[in-house]
Design a protein around this nucleic acid. Structure first.
Lengths: 337, 337
DNA sequence: CTAGCATGATCAAACGATTGTTCACGAGGA
DNA sequence: TCCTCGTGAACAATCGTTTGATCATGCTAG
């Protein structure tokens, strides 16, 4: 790899001249002739500035960390796509740090953050990491944006309209005529989970429908936990005729468990889920979903982080555009009689 | 962030002493007393070695690039999980570089590789990048491992048993009694696509079944192209009774297109697909698949890259353990008749 | 004729860590 | 007493860039 000084030698000038010319700072005084020679030499040697040296000098790595609960789900994929795209436009790279099966005394996150590897971090904690973990991260002093979890004290979060989304989902079932509606939510410690539950309860209250406690489950956002939620509801003397699932991944679990139990969807039970990923269409029946802008969430998160890195400001943003939208497919229908 | 010299000052010793003690190289002569003082000081200041400085001095970034065609598919997710896990165990980080919608004159890959940001690169080129692109990457001088594409000339690839896998899939249909079998493959320029096609043709030949050219399509690995393949076959005067799809993502496209056209699966047409991701189970009908070890492929790729980085050796490996396995679900059945 | 100044370029110090070389000191042998 | 050698530690160069300070030159103005 050619270095600055290689270019300097070839062009017959000093290193600093080369540096100044190639970095194109306004107001540098270099004659047109040498400028040309430097550009030529750089091109001939295929010069590329060494990233590590730059990072050391400027304490900017042009990289951000993305901490996610896991990489094998479609929600992550959508989010990731947004982050990746925005990062590219800002000339940043994305470093993935997956926290699945986080071992005791995990060191990788503090290391990621403490060693000056990244300029900032995006965290999407799933079910299994708590507010305490979030605090550890935010206390590191690095710019941090938390995705879809509000960050108590230290600002910097990007969220979706979870509550409005769940209202939409619930109202859809109510309009279809369902009155006994179950809820399969995230774990109670999840802040987004609380907002989603509030949306569900709000919509039910507005329709003056009662919600029996046994119909509200909070097992988590993953397929297994969706299955678990359905099991719990199926055991009831009178199961619900419809279920609002707070996460599409859990909804896939609900669907396969329903198949296992011989519950027909939507004939015996309607299902509506939060988030509209491509997997909703390949499921059977295709899932009625509330689409929330995950891609835009990713973009916004990266954009906010960039702002935070460059100006130190950290606001809490809610991504409301595009607004939550109900996508009706084939997993919902009026209650059987 | 505390630096080495902060620690040195606090412990009342020189920077080099601290460096030597903390890096724990064998054969350093430092008294027990100062050693202790250094460790204490480091702990009190919560010292962490600065990654950029280390990288500059040692020309090792402890990061690798993962170049993939896209992040929103389950195959990538599985692969990624393997790469990520192996990287973690080797104390490496993974930088994602997605090539979807690669603009003209894309600069991000050369930049990723040329600026000393990573110690090596893992490339999984999908359909839309050719051998030429691969060569650009391998010619950079950086260690490169190509995933599931053999790397002409310069070694370093990790592959799956594509041919054996496709044989398994095809034989399954033959055993069910199908004789008129279609093939929905990857684009002809894809090297893995060629191996898969060979597997299909081989199995057909072994069973002395003829393959009419019109039944062999090579549109690509994505859902849309799967749909396109089905369209082409459905137009035939006598469509096949079964289709081997060379990629599960394409198979999802086949499935939804079949639904659109009113073709019942498996009653009217059986479908078997390559790769067994979690989406196979949520599809309707759940897809019969050939499971190839994608997670292990990811791990092996990262392990090979690590070897390559550290020893300069680049071999071509085929991941044969676990062996290809047919997972029979509900998308295949004997031909109607 | 020279002080003053704009111009175009170089010098040199830093960023934080690593590492070969040197140094100070005391013990041991001649 | 002098030289040698081993020990424990400091010195200093280096990785490749960036950037404030400095310098040489030629020109203009007083």
């Amino acid at each position: 790899m050619a270095t600055l000084s290689d270019v300097a030698t070839r062009a017959g000038v000093s290193v600093s001249a080369v540096s100044r010319v190639l970095s194109e700072k306004p107001g540098v005084r270099v004659s047109v002739a040498t400028r040309q020679r430097i550009h030529d030499a750089a091109k001939e040697l295929n010069y590329r500035p060494n990233f590590t040296a730059r990072a050391l000098k400027s304490s900017r790595t042009h990289a951000v960390g993305l901490v996610v609960p896991g990489v094998t789900n479609a929600i992550f994929a959508e989010l990731m796509r947004g982050v990746e795209e925005e990062a590219k436009s800002k000339d940043y790279m994305v470093l993935i740090a997956s926290t699945e099966r986080l071992p005791e005394g995990e060191e990788s996150i503090p290391r990621l953050m403490g060693e000056g590897r990244v300029d900032g971090v995006l965290v999407q904690f799933g079910d299994h990491l708590s507010g305490d973990d979030l605090r550890t991260v935010t206390d590191s002093g690095l710019p941090v944006i938390s995705i879809n979890t509000i960050n108590p004290g230290r600002g910097g979060s990007v969220r979706l309209e979870d509550e409005a989304g769940m209202r939409l989902a619930t109202e859809h079932l109510i309009e279809l005529g369902h009155t006994r509606i179950g809820y399969a939510g995230g774990v109670p410690t999840s802040e987004s989970g609380q907002r989603r539950l509030a949306g569900f309860l709000g919509a039910m209250a507005d329709a003056t429908l009662t919600v029996e406690p046994e119909l509200v489950t909070e097992f988590g956002y993953y397929p297994k936990q969706g299955a678990q939620a359905l099991d719990a509801m199926a055991e009831l003397s009178t199961p619900p005729t419809a279920v609002v699932v707070a996460n599409i991944n859990a909804a896939h679990g609900v669907l396969s468990e329903a198949r296992r139990l011989g519950i027909r969807v939507p004939e015996d039970m309607s299902i509506v889920a939060m988030h509209d990923t491509w997997t909703a269409e390949i499921a059977w029946p295709p899932l009625t979903c509330v689409r929330l802008p995950l891609y835009e969430l990713g973009r916004a998160a990266m954009a906010s982080l960039w702002d935070n890195i460059n100006s130190g400001t950290a606001e809490d943003r809610v991504i409301a555009d595009p607004a939550p939208e109900l996508i009706v497919r084939e997993s919902t229908a009026p209650p059987a009689r």
